[in-house]
Structures are given as C-alpha cells and as structure tokens.
Amino acid sequence: MKKEFIITTYSENHIGLTNRITIILTRRQVNIESLTGSESALPGIHKITIVINEEEEKVKNIVKQIDKIVDVLKAFYHTNEEMIYQEIALYKVLTKSLMESDEIEKLIRSHNARILEITPEYTVIEKTGHKEETQELFQGLNKFGVLQFIRSGRIALTRSPIEKLSEFLKERDELLEKVETRSKLRKAN
C-alpha cells in the first residue's frame, strides 16, 4: 500500500548532488511531493528532505540507492508519525477584501496565521502547519479571492532529542578505520 514517507539525507554540500538524488527517484517513476535542502546543525553538512508517496518496500530500496551515492553520508526514511514536520504557506489577498468585513481577520486568528505585510493594495498572510491545515486556510481565504498562494516543501525533525550527527561522524570514522579495503591491504604489503 502506498503512503507518505519522509526521506532525509545528510550529505556533503556538492554541486549536482540533489540531481543525483532525484534521478534515483525519477528513474523509478516516483513522483516527488516536496523537496527541501538546508544546512544541518553541523557546518558543511547538508540536509535534504524529500516527501514521496510510495510502498514501503520500494522506499527501502530507494533509500539504499541514495545511501550508495558517494557524497551522501547517510539516508533514512520515516513515516509521518515518526517525525515532527511543518510546511509554510503564504497567501496574498486584496487589502480591500480584508477591510470590507472582519471575516478574513477571523480566519487568520482561528487558523493561528499572521499578517506579514499590508500595503494599500494587498496583504500577505503566513501560516505554518501541515498541508491539510494550510490548505484549509486557503479554502477559507479563497472565498474572498486569493491573488497568489505558495506552499514550501516539508521540513522535518526526528523525535530524538538531538541531531546525533557528530556521534554519527565519529562512528563512521571508526567504521572506515575498521574495514580493511583491498587498497589498504595493498598499501600495507
């Protein structure tokens, strides 16, 4: 059964890496619901978060393929329940419609949204939440006419207290010391 999964990758911040990751998905006919890139808590390490709708077996294989990319430190996948995640949405409405009644203001308050900018012409509203929530606000506001709407890709954190990246890097270093690759064995000879 297909469902939503969040793929998280930690990688070097190299040119073309996002492309390398996405071609693994496109080659397998997997549609990307959203994709976000940013720095992680550790400088120099880049984090990419991808949301896809797929069967778990396929997701497992895809994550292994991503993990195999030389510049990827580690790739994981999680279900929505396993992560804390948000998306951000921006809505532009006519300031005139905002002034005409208090309906829009009520919507903003009841949805915990906020106003980013008001000009005589237009007003920009911001809301952070899950897709269903930002979508619901869109539906509400669109009764008054939404001029522009945009939703960001998903950002997500695991439920463990800290990003265990520095620990991970230490473990990785130990692992790499431990494996005697053929080139190392040859060097020793």
Binding site: E12, V72, L169, L176, S183, K184
Partner: peptide
C-alpha cells in the same frame, strides 16, 4: 597523495 578514505563513502562493511 593517494586517497584512502572518504567520510561519506563506505566501500565495504565489516
């Protein structure tokens, strides 16, 4: 200098 290790790449597992 020859390369013997890349932190993001595990050529084989123990």
């Amino acid at each position: 200098a020859k390369c013997h290790k890349i932190r993001s790449y595990v050529p084989e597992y123990p």
